[in-house]
Computed example of a mutant assay.
Amino acid sequence: MKRLNKYISDTGFCSRREADKLIEQKRVKVNGIAPELGTKIGDADKVEVDGKLIKAVPDNKSDRVYLAYHKPVGITCTTERKVKGNIVDAVNYPQRIFPIGRLDKPSEGLILLTNDGDIVNKILRAENAHEKQYRVNVNKAISPSFLEKMSRGVPILNTVTLPCEVKQIGKQSFDIVLTQGLNRQIRRMCEYLGYEVTRLVRRRIMHIKLDKLNAGQYRKLSDDELNVLNRQVQASVKTATYANKG
């Protein structure tokens, strides 16, 4: 037996969180009946979303897709097709895929997309264990005080950001490595210190790099990248689970 939300996410239809929303909205039926949240299903059960049959994923995940995409400015990280400029239409991949996490509409750079709901859940559950590197341009010259305060932590959103690595690249640009994912975090940090972000590019997620992908281009992850990703996700989920028990 498997929980219905996990069954749906494992098929690549959407994330587990989005599957719960579909169930709450009564858009999911099991054997013709709208189920409750937390429902468990077996191999013989028939699952439909919006009237369309959802097929179980092969045990070896041979049909899974893993993409690195250079999201352009103006694209919104949503699977809602009614939203103009949504990431699904922008990528225009022949199979149904969805983004892992988010990248602000005015920002650009690396985002991962997949139809493997299981890996999405593992990455998002342990998000604060994963490094993300950004190249940031601001509207005026960077001071040593700015770099020191950014790296030490800045009070935003009723908390103080975790210490992070910050390195000046040019007169008005710097690289920053975060292990947090607060809403518009870098922009808010800069605003607090009197700077305005003029360009923000995510260049790396964990070991996966943007490299030479131009805005709007995507590539499949290599076998090596996938192997490392699975190892890191497994380790960080265990760490996060243990930490949450404290």
Rank of each mutant, 00 (worst) to 15 (best):
S173Y: 04
I142A: 14
D224W: 02
I119F: 03
K6D: 09
S143A: 14
G32N: 02
E108L: 01
E165N: 14
K167S: 05
G12E: 01
K171C: 13
T76H: 10
D223S: 05
A235D: 13
L22S: 08
G216E: 06
I119W: 02
I156G: 07
V47M: 03
K105Q: 03
L182V: 09
L210N: 05
K21P: 06
Q133R: 10
D175T: 12
L213G: 10
L157A: 12
R17A: 14
N92C: 03
R102N: 11
A240K: 00
N92G: 10
S145T: 13
C14M: 07
K84W: 11
I208A: 01
V177Q: 09
P163I: 07
G216L: 12
G85M: 10
V237C: 07
R202N: 13
A141Q: 02
N227I: 07
G153P: 12
Q95N: 04
S236Q: 11
D59R: 06
K26N: 14
S143W: 07
I169G: 08
V28W: 01
L67T: 05
E108F: 04
L157G: 11
E24C: 12
D50R: 00
R96Y: 13
N137S: 14
A240N: 01
A240P: 02
S173E: 09
K212R: 07
G153I: 04
R125Y: 13
A126L: 00
H130K: 09
L22E: 06
F174Q: 08
V47I: 09
E225Q: 09
L4F: 11
T114I: 10
H130Q: 08
K84H: 14
K149H: 15
I97A: 02
N214S: 15
K6P: 03
T239F: 06
N128W: 07
L110D: 05
S107R: 00
N158K: 07
L67C: 05
T78G: 15
R152A: 15
G12R: 00
N121A: 15
A215W: 02
S222L: 00
S15L: 11
N244Y: 14
L213D: 06
V73Q: 03
A34T: 11
D63L: 13
Y7S: 00
K209L: 03
R135S: 04
E131A: 05
I169M: 13
R81K: 13
D59A: 13
F13K: 01
N115V: 03
Q185H: 13
V73H: 01
R81T: 14
G109A: 10
G12S: 06
A90V: 09
A19E: 01
L157C: 11
K220Y: 14
R102E: 06
E225Y: 08
D59S: 14
Q232G: 09
V73N: 04
R16S: 00
G181N: 07
L53C: 11
N214L: 15
N31I: 00
N5F: 02
